[in-house]
Amino acid sequence: MITPRRLFLAAPGLLLLPRAAHATAEAMAEAVRGFTGGAPVTRGRVTLDISPLVENGNTVPLSVVVDSPMTAADHVRAIAVFNERNPQPHVITAQLGPRAGRAMLATHMRLATSQRLLAVASLSDGSFWSDEAQVVVTLAACIEG
């Protein structure tokens, strides 16, 4: 028989229930599929530059550069960055075109924990290219309190 007192005693256990508070490898793959529309992604042409050892996950500089002539016939249409273990797998999606001159994007992101990052570029010929980086974080961003 469950008495209110028993419920009360069980309460601390409820706090230990796993929270669906971070993305997973599957969630990241799903987010990448949302960006590519299921098209195959080839490793290469993209350079994701981020420090491999991060002291403070609250502000982590990263940059993405894609090897592309950026002409009207051959340019990068979009660059997206995904993560594996933040609460949401998506970081940023940038739309660019031949007017950009260079396929380059830099920003500062949050990292909830040590994890793998993936940058994907969408090219005007319909192909997708990527680069990934493994990052170790010593002080996590206060995303989960």
């Binding site: 500089p61 940059s63 949401q88 940023i92 999606t93 660019l96 260079r102 380059m104 830099a106 949050r110």
Partner: peptide, 21 residues
Amino acid sequence: VFQAELSPAIAANPFLSFTTV
């Protein structure tokens, strides 16, 4: 010439750098 969609994973005081001709 440039457009970006941000997520909560972007740090406070969002910084963006890009190029144009």
